[in-house]
Write a protein that binds this DNA or RNA. Structure first.
Lengths: 342, 342
DNA sequence: ATTAGCACTGAACCATCGAGAGTGCTAAAA
DNA sequence: TTTTAGCACTCTCGATGGTTCAGTGCTAAT
């Protein structure tokens, strides 16, 4: 459908647009990339590419700029060729700083976003695994105040969460230990989703309602395990505001709305986390109105098949994809190593 | 130095500028605020006010706009008169939503910032107490992996923090309990600052180095207590971007740089937290270059004399101060109640 | 001390114009 | 048949200039 020559021209246009702001004309392409073709020929090809939806004109008599579809083609051929960036030294230096934080996953992820945004000059994002599908490793209950208990949740993914829950009556630490023991024997090794179901089922049993220990245990679970959510970290908005792409206010508003709506971002990243390797969504592929001018490049850190975190970059569709892919890929691998070895 | 009439004119100009964007001229003041004076007289007064540094002209033959000093005078007289906003019902409705979160201070504060920004249409900020001056109530050590321990720190302010620390050798939970017991007996009731000093002192003692239990305890403390920092929550950037004040890119960049630099914001809020009641910093009073076009309205939640949290609003200097003060004041009182009753 | 009157100022808006970049089309060349 | 040169055309962008308008500062009268 697209002959070799058209492909080359398309990629040249996209590349040039990424490298230099401003629409790209036939003359530029003919000159800068040596096709041995005259501007007129390039013009014809570009007209064809426009017809096919890879390029568009901001206005008659301007050059062409890529559409989302154009970027997609470019990125796909980039990935196919494995033609990324490469200067590992710079990365390594920044990663070293993160080494010291490996014990505390939330601090690690939060700092990782800063590193990502520094490296890429785009927005860095990172997300801890979705609690719903995380598996509980252990729960500990510590008496906190007379009728409050701090529940410490450990997951197989290495997350540690603490939540305070209120009880209807005072309970001794000894009783709490018994309750915790019971909960661990029942729920350890199950995902939070499963546990929630079990709790609901258990609560409806006659037997449970009579056994005050189990009843208490279930109540605590209800409060402690519901409404858990992924932690998400975002940083580097000020980086992208320096880019010429963000000259207009509307775009900035959209972006800031999008990144403040953590819930939606979490869903987006979660959906991507089932795949392996670097995933890329370009412009409207995001399926979020506010994000239609932006691209997302992410990779999921996995231990076996289980996601243990997501890292990535958000930037304008006119993004240096080669560099972004390279950075995200390496950062994900680095974080994976740190989290798995932990 | 400023006679009654000048004061009134000054406040009228500021009020008008806050209510309607655009510089305010003598005619407007004379008309909208019934002084019984002609525009010409107002003009003279305004010229005086400019000379004294309360007002400024964007350009000759434009109206006047307030300087930071002008705002300051206005705000001071606002506070002196206790002349705030008042429709408590709206607030109450939003606060109810927060009630459910009272057990978990970080979730509470994070949601509070959203409420603040929704109410004010400016940026909401909230900060947990500075760990340095928080007092440790209890420390618990839970075995996490072979050579890792999760340290759970409880403070008198109601914070719960967990950190993972690495050990040089495996330690049993029983030993950990002994270590925790020792640490609690030694450090409970002391601030983290004090504890850090004690740890350093202890580490230098010959006796310590020989006692492997104490040595371990100190090592754990070192890792767990150092580099603690306040949690800070910020939200509502997209709200302020809708304001006409944020038409120009430079301002947006400054603001986003300022709120991404959490460290500096923490220092700023910390400095303000020693005072009681609503504190206001206008424009350049912030002493941060990036913040010179913005104002901060905060109030510290205290239990007795001890700060247990800071809540506030960041917005343009052209801010509805009466409303902002009202919102911050009430929110701080509400949060204080929730945290203290906990 | 206050005010009316008036000349003056500078931003904002609008229309116009020329330059420049780049196109599409046509006809000639390969 | 494909490629290219040539040319008319289109649209943006920046500069220019005129007009309007809000609001000032000053002066002289009240």
């Amino acid at each position: 459908m697209l002959n070799e020559r058209s492909k080359k021209v398309l990629c040249a246009v996209v590349q040039n647009y990424i490298d230099f702001p401003g629409s790209v004309g036939s003359r530029t392409v003919a000159k800068r990339y040596s096709f041995g073709l005259s501007p007129a020929t390039i013009r014809n090809i570009m007209a064809d590419l426009e017809e096919m939806g890879f390029l568009t004109q901001p206005h008659t008599s301007a050059g062409r700029i890529p559409t989302d579809r154009g970027y997609r083609f470019y990125v796909d051929s980039l990935v196919a060729e494995g033609d990324y960036y490469s200067n590992i030294e710079i990365l390594q230096g920044l990663y070293n700083r993160l080494e010291a934080l490996r014990n505390n996953i939330d601090v690690l992820l939060s700092e990782t976003t800063k590193t990502l945004s520094m490296l890429s000059h785009y927005i860095g994002v990172a997300m801890s695994p979705m609690p719903d599908i995380s598996t509980l490793k252990r729960i500990e209950l510590l008496k906190y105040k007379a009728d409050k208990v701090a529940a410490i949740l450990f997951t197989d993914e290495g997350l540690i969460k603490n939540r305070v829950v209120s009880l209807d009556s005072e309970v001794s630490q000894k009783d709490l230990n018994r309750i915790a023991g019971y909960l661990n024997s029942e729920f350890s090794g199950h995902t939070f989703d499963e546990i929630r179901l079990k709790v609901i089922k258990e609560m409806s049993k006659e037997k449970t309602r009579c056994n005050s220990l189990i009843l208490r245990a279930m109540r605590i679970c209800q409060e402690a395990l519901f409404f858990l959510h992924s932690d998400i970290f975002v940083s580097g908005l000020s980086e992208v505001l320096e880019l010429p792409d963000f000259a207009d206010l509307k775009k900035i508003r959209d972006l800031s709305r999008a990144i403040e709506d953590k819930h939606t971002i979490i869903k987006l990243l979660d959906k991507l986390s089932e795949f392996d390797g670097v995933q890329i969504l370009i412009g409207s592929e995001n399926l979020m109105d506010e994000m239609e001018k932006f691209s997302v490049v992410v990779s999921t850190c996995k231990e076996g098949d289980r996601p243990i975190g997501v890292v990535g970059i958000i930037g304008p569709t006119r993004m240096n994809y080669a560099k972004a892919i390279y950075i995200v890929d390496n950062t994900a691998k680095f974080i994976t190593k740190m989290l798995v070895e932990r």
